[in-house]
Nucleic acid binder design. Structure first.
Lengths: 226, 226
DNA sequence: GTGCAACCTGCACGATCATGTAGTGTGCCG
DNA sequence: CGGCACACTACATGATCGTGCAGGTTGCAC
């Protein structure tokens, strides 16, 4: 089992020195290079990529709070240049917006600077073998984000609480409403009279317990009813 | 350190029996109850809640694939009745849509049935002490989902294509519309007359180039304008 | 001082919506 | 056969919306 080669990008000299020493002694890992700024790293990576040479490391440990270009932007660019290279973000904080931004930038892991050495090694090994380890704090943050997002909302379920149960025709009428059609326009589209549109609208509003087109459109869009 | 009390909801008799035996012997855990269906569990929980009694467990291990009401729906309802109760979902699969739906329903953890016993205990202990452990596979799935979502995208920019540029007041009026307020209700809320509401609505519609409340609500919700 | 943006107010009126009431026809199921 | 669900149609009416037109005040920049 070959050692995993790392690069460290950290502006703080003390932390950089501590980590350098740590990885020079850590079993299973080799420290291939150390940078104090993202710009320096990216400049070297660009040269290597243009020369068609492989990077001397497989995994980058990237501080988020770097001077000049921050770690998140650097990750975004690094991932674009060398997508197979792993990037682990390092930071003091568990702020949701930062975590989210780092993940969107392509980070493979997220490591708190306060993690102990065993945690760090475990996580790096997991990433090196294709995992995506998250500390419990980071995982909780992510779960909270997902819970509060729209992502988890599913297509309508037949047994949604409240007994939501629109007929096919009601769905069609709802679709017209969401598209901004007047009743007359919806009637023309569906080949029925405006009276029937009103009849169905009444059914929809009753089932969804709404009282205006604004409410019904909001619900339809948010809950992906159409 | 008091043992963590569990409830198990699993319809498969063999797996239920295996897990029952396992937890009766597992250090740090007590199995307080076992159910073969979500309905039975929820009925008992409802009785206890209505009687003002605490549940005899702190953590539920919930199979996702239950007959009748599935584990995700059961989790949603259980979390609504007893938010402090932990729920760990159990399933054979790592399907992203299912994972996401479970998380949105409020699950505190997600456990694959193929996990070995040490993993199971580690994860349950972590959840019991406020963590949110995820297996590396599940974590990778979640990270992928986040990367591919628009959650990481920044808030709507003031200079959206098309020269969108609502004033602060227009935003307030739009918010009222999206909430389903009539003009009169919006006027009452903002302490202005219905004539001013109409004035602002006209401004909003002109800027967004829409012609009805349905259109404007749809756009506002989809584009997160409010 | 002047012009502009933002906010506020008012009137008028046709178009549209929301709701209650009534009726018909078809297919399915017990 | 009768009841139910669904779809269609119609009428009436008060409430609300959308639009055009008109006017006023305040703060800010030039």
């Amino acid at each position: 089992m070959e050692n995993v080669k790392l690069v460290l990008i950290e502006d703080n000299p003390r932390y950089r020195s501590t980590l350098s020493d740590f990885f020079r002694l850590a079993p299973g890992f080799d420290l291939a290079a150390v940078y104090g700024s993202a710009e320096a790293l990216l400049a070297d990576v660009q040269q290597l990529v243009q020369a068609g040479k492989p990077l001397p490391w497989k995994m980058a440990m990237m501080d988020i709070e770097l001077p000049g270009m921050d770690g998140i932007e650097a990750t975004r660019r690094l991932k674009k240049m060398v997508p197979d290279n792993h990037v682990v973000m390092m930071t003091m904080f568990e702020e949701p917006a930062t975590i989210l931004e780092a993940i969107s930038a392509g980070a493979d892991g997220y490591l708190l600077k306060r993690s102990n050495s065993r945690e760090v090694l475990d996580q790096l090994r997991s990433i090196a073998t294709g995992g995506a380890p998250l500390t419990s704090g980071v995982a909780r943050t992510i779960l909270d984000l997902l819970r509060n997002s729209d992502l988890g909302k599913t297509a309508p379920r037949k047994d949604t609480p409240g007994g939501l149960d629109l007929t096919e025709r009601e769905h069609e009428v709802l679709r017209c409403l969401v598209n901004g059609c007047s009743y007359k326009e919806a009637a023309d589209q569906l080949g029925i009279t405006i009276h029937t549109i009103r009849f169905h609208v009444k059914g929809i509003y009753g089932k969804l317990q709404v009282h205006s087109v604004a409410e019904v459109v909001r619900r339809a869009v948010r809950e992906r009813l159409v």
